[in-house]
Design a protein around this nucleic acid. Structure first.
Lengths: 233, 233
DNA sequence: CGCGGAGGATTGTGTAACAATGTTCCCATG
DNA sequence: CATGGGAACATTGTTACACAATCCTCCGCG
């Protein structure tokens, strides 16, 4: 069923820049809280400052960077309050997604749906086996996203996706110690429990991961830079 | 307790333009689906196209306008699918907010909180009495926002606020017939039920309003313009 | 040591131009 | 008459340069 018309005007300069900065930021090449200077980036990518500003605006929309008038853009930072707020939002979205799924399908979700979730779980297992932290992180995100996507509620899915990108950034500087293979096992059980018992588990699961993240950040014993406007000089 | 430092750099041109366009759009002066041409707006407000484009980007972020590369900006439009998707997201947020409230406060919410909700309800009553539809609409939104704000979950509140603006736009062209005074009565009962019985009612309430909106739109018997990319020529 | 202010750095906005894409409309062709 | 091809035009995307507004640093003064 071909979509009415797939317009493909070459990706705009802003779009490609957004992608490049996105991956630089997510890869940790830029570091949480680091300032992004227009001129420098404009020169580095051979673009005009206007274009760079356009890209910044989009990245700010995804909350990967924060924008302050006359003070510029910087890669976002997350203190514990931000973590909690994010997890509450995530909880709202994932919980509702599961509830919608169960409203529609009861405890027997159609295979088309469970299949995708299973596939995501498999990829998570593979990533974990490979011992690649970044890949594992993304695969983990994809599992949750698959669950939310299954609800076929576009706005919920979209907000969740945005949140996921933000989470990737937040976690980009920490590494959670986890016995190999337990992440996938835990999530297989989680998914099954959602199907069997409903959305109640979502909050438990999130509380668990919130604690892991907090612990991992506290582990980084060094005086954690909280994102106050300016760390006192 | 004075905030660290309230920076007040004069509002930027983009910000003020966003506000002006926001109110023009919400007031219906521009009409759902109407295109916004950069040049025209730049001239009308005596600004450069760059500034206008910046404002468009922000309005798109709030989903009041849609942006298509090389095709420009237009005021958003909403078909039934969009309405449903919005309501699902709204349900996710409001439900979680109430759950957070009851987690913290049980069935006895502190007065500081109920007070704000009551105030919003009072304003709704006043607006309804005055028979001003626009004001009633805003007051109604404020009641729900007050409930969500009470949960003190900043991200949930923020997403909800964005959604509320979008909803105002969606409703800007319809008028729901409602016996005077019944909106506030209904919402007083709703708020009380949330306190007493929890978040279960949220979905019912939303389903109810979804139906009212759909009915009101169907009432506008004229061939409703659905926002397909381009209505076939 | 704290404070104010000069000077530099950076962001915000404007003007003008051109490139890339979308849109319209005329017209030749069947 | 319909239809497809394209020119001509309209609109958006991007650049370069300039200047204004604001922030930041650092120095000298009390």
């Amino acid at each position: 069923m071909p979509r009415r018309r797939e317009r493909r005007p070459g990706p705009t300069a802003v779009e490609t820049l957004v992608e490049r900065l996105h991956s630089e930021i997510l890869s940790g090449a830029i570091g949480l809280g680091a300032p992004l200077r227009e001129e420098e980036i404009a020169e580095r990518f051979d673009l005009s400052r206007h274009t760079v500003r356009g890209a910044f605006a989009r990245l700010a929309e995804q909350r990967l960077v924060t924008l302050e008038p006359y003070r510029g853009a910087r890669v976002a930072q997350f203190d514990d309050a931000a973590l909690i707020a994010m997890q509450q939002l995530r909880g709202a979205l994932e919980t509702e997604a599961v509830r919608l799924l169960r409203d529609r399908h009861g405890s027997r979700w159609p295979e088309r749906i469970t299949e995708r979730i299973s596939a995501a779980l498999d990829r998570l297992g593979a990533a974990e086996d490979a011992g690649e932290w970044g890949r594992t992180l993304r695969a983990h995100g994809a599992v949750h996203q698959a669950i939310v996507d299954a609800a076929e509620s576009p706005r919920i899915a979209e907000e969740y996706a945005r949140l996921d990108g933000e989470t990737m950034l937040m976690l980009s500087e920490i590494r959670i110690e986890y016995p190999r293979g337990s992440l996938v096992a835990e999530h297989r059980a989680y998914a099954q429990a959602l199907i069997d018992e409903g959305e109640g588990l979502v909050r438990t699961h999130l509380a668990h991961s919130t604690e892991l993240i907090r612990a991992a950040r506290a582990e980084d014993a060094r005086p954690r830079p909280q994102p106050g406007p300016d760390p006192s000089p």
